[in-house]
């Protein structure tokens, strides 16, 4: 047997759709090795020593930004984080100009979160650095989907044949788009449910089944994933009230009982308790919401390492 060696084909991670099943497997397998590093007394390896990573965040984020920063530091990269509010963006600089100026200082990796779909693709065209999409508008959030898949795989052994129900604000969710691409590639049967006003068209392209009945989606599910109601992206009246949403679509213990007894409850965060998820479900025994956060660091370490490090010969 020869040692398996492989690497990511592309120089960026912009979306899940561009990844092959082999590349997905490589990321998840590498994340397994990275997770162990987080359990050591000294949680740091020198793999990305001398590598500069810029975290460019044009949208508020606690979890994703912290997760990337911890991942970068555990790999010994030099990191700096720029929040749009405190940068020249506030003075009217365009994304491309910001990127060109950063580029002039030769970073190796740029992690970007931006409210416009496709912003990371634009950045990738003008930059030499590896670009990692940390969420672009309503398009994709690939590392979130990868950590979700990693978490499911850890509990269920694999994804093939599992029924995954995704419930919530489907229209505005980049997490949904990345997860649809990833989960269906890995062989899961995906059901999505939400109010008719929040179900985008074209979901059948991914082979997902959509319904306005939460009960139908949750029935017999192995994984129940809740998505946040994104009021900040809603320009118009999509739901009458948050209270009504909870009544009809919120995940309660009663609704969860329709799923498999060992079904996992997941949420990408931040949680709106009492809107898309009841508190006792979020904190219940089936919830793996905090494990998702832990695994996020390992998955982001894997992505950073596979893109920016690890080009040594044996």
């Amino acid at each position: 047997m020869t040692t398996t060696r492989t690497r990511l084909g592309g120089t960026h991670l912009l979306d899940i759709e561009s990844l092959s099943p082999e590349e997905i497997a490589l990321i998840l397998e590498t994340a397994d090795a990275m997770k162990e590093i987080g359990t050591r007394p000294i949680k740091k390896v020198p793999a990305l020593r001398g590598t500069t990573v810029v975290n460019l965040f044009f949208e508020p984020s606690t979890r994703t930004r912290t997760s990337f920063e911890i991942a970068e530091k555990r790999l010994s990269a030099d990191t700096l984080s720029i929040a749009a509010a405190t940068s020249s963006v506030a003075k009217g600089e365009t994304l491309v100009d910001t990127a060109r100026n950063l580029e002039a200082m030769a970073p190796d990796v740029i992690v970007i979160r931006h409210p416009s779909s496709g912003a990371c693709h634009l950045l990738a065209q003008v930059c030499q650095a590896h670009v990692i999409n940390a969420g672009d508008g309503m398009h994709e959030h690939p590392t979130q989907a990868l950590l979700d898949a990693y978490t499911i795989r850890e509990h269920k052994g694999g994804l093939a044949g599992l029924k995954v129900a995704i419930i919530g604000d489907l229209l505005h969710s980049r997490v949904l788009r990345s997860n649809l691409a990833l989960l269906t590639t890995l062989g899961a049967e995906v059901w999505v449910a939400g109010p008719a006003t929040l179900i985008p068209r074209g979901l059948d392209r991914y082979g997902a089944r959509s319904t306005t009945s939460v009960d139908e989606a949750v029935e017999g599910a192995d994984v129940v994933m809740l998505l946040r109601i994104q009021l900040e992206r809603m320009r118009g009246l999509f739901i009458p009230s948050l209270r009504e949403y909870f009544e009809l679509f919120g995940m309660t213990r009663e609704r969860l009982a329709l799923a498999q007894p060992e079904a996992l409850v997941m949420h990408p965060g931040p949680l709106n308790r009492g809107v898309e998820i009841a508190s006792d479900v979020a904190d219940g025994p089936q919830s793996v919401i905090l494990e998702q956060v832990t695994n996020g660091v390992a998955v982001r370490m894997a992505v950073l390492y596979l893109l920016a490090g690890g080009v040594g010969a044996d």
């Binding site: 090795a33 390896v45 390492y305 040594g312």
Partner: peptide, 24 residues
């Protein structure tokens, strides 16, 4: 697994990438 401690990790820009495996 010593992959991430190698001194040639960032030096060769071509060549295969060793798979990182779990330290136990």
């Amino acid at each position: 697994d010593i992959t991430m401690y190698r001194d040639d990790l960032m030096r060769n820009t071509v060549g295969p990438q060793p798979l990182v495996r779990r330290t136990e």
